[in-house]
């Protein structure tokens, strides 16, 4: 919300998000006109899996220049950190420093299978035109699977209206899907989370599911209960004001 357009373009083009630098806090310093309006959305995330807790989600409201991730594109380190280790702090930190972001929420708690969690996000803006929401959360009993939704158009939601979307499962492509105990950070194994080494495709793609020991992968710490099909989450967005 505070850098020049030029900087924004450079950052977006290079994906060098770290270049944001500094620790400039999130002061609403620049906001020019005084004609800002208050907006509030409630976002509910439902875990649709049988045995994959979802890590605390990162929720970002942004314009169409911001992109947390995309299919066929190498994941940022922040996405890698979330998808391999379940931490949303890097995604939240980066979003807070991004000019194209209007509001960020980093959840504190995971969402168990069958459970739901609701988050309230409020922000000031001149209008909702071009506003989008991206949500991301890890399936923690996997190597680097995550679900959510990206670039959801929230500009046309009326007050008190709810829209509902299913969240597919992506593979961050940053860690081989070995399914070994040493590499799965979730409760099934408490293995390693984030590791900066990239030993997989190194682009984000749709996830093909887990194999598990019950389906013949003897080195897998997972069993049949951990399998999943698309989608893994449902996202319900209600505009409060």
């Amino acid at each position: 919300m505070k850098k020049s357009l030029l900087t924004t373009t450079v950052v977006a083009a290079s994906l060098a998000l770290a270049a944001c630098g500094g620790s400039s806090s999130n002061s609403n310093s620049n906001n020019d006109e005084s004609s800002e309006n208050s907006y509030e959305f409630q976002v509910e995330v439902v875990n649709l899996t049988n045995a994959q807790p979802l890590s605390p989600p990162a929720l970002v409201i942004h314009d169409d220049q911001y992109q947390m991730f995309d299919e066929g594109v190498s994941a940022t380190t922040a996405i890698e950190s979330m998808a391999e280790g379940g931490s949303n702090s890097e995604l939240v930190d980066e979003a807070e420093q991004n000019d194209d972001v209007v509001a960020v929420h980093g959840a504190d708690s995971p969402i168990g299978p069958g459970a739901s969690a609701s988050y309230t996000i409020s922000f000031q803006a001149n209008s909702l035109t071009g506003s989008e929401l991206t949500v991301a959360t890890m399936l923690v009993n996997t190597n680097d699977a995550f679900t959510g939704q990206k670039d959801i158009d929230i500009s046309n939601i009326a007050v008190n209206e709810t829209i509902r979307l299913n969240g597919p499962v992506w593979d961050a492509g940053t860690e081989a899907n070995s399914e070994t105990a040493a590499t799965i950070p979730g409760p099934v194994a408490s293995g390693e989370g984030f590791n900066e080494e990239r030993d997989d495709l190194n682009v984000v793609v749709f996830h093909t599911g887990v194999v598990t020991a019950d389906d013949g992968l003897s080195t897998s710490v997972l069993n049949q209960s951990h399998r999943f099909d698309q989608p893994a989450s449902q996202i319900r967005i209600t505009r409060i004001r």
Binding site: N47, T49, N50, P113, G114, Q224, S225
Partner: peptide
């Protein structure tokens, strides 16, 4: 028998059948 328990007792996306290729035994 594949399992005797379910973790998610609410309506959710089916994880698919496991199945096996053994007509007379297996799980």
């Amino acid at each position: 028998g594949v399992t005797t328990t379910e973790q998610n007792t609410n309506v959710h996306i089916h994880r698919n059948v496991l199945g096996d290729s053994d007509e007379n035994a297996g799980t």
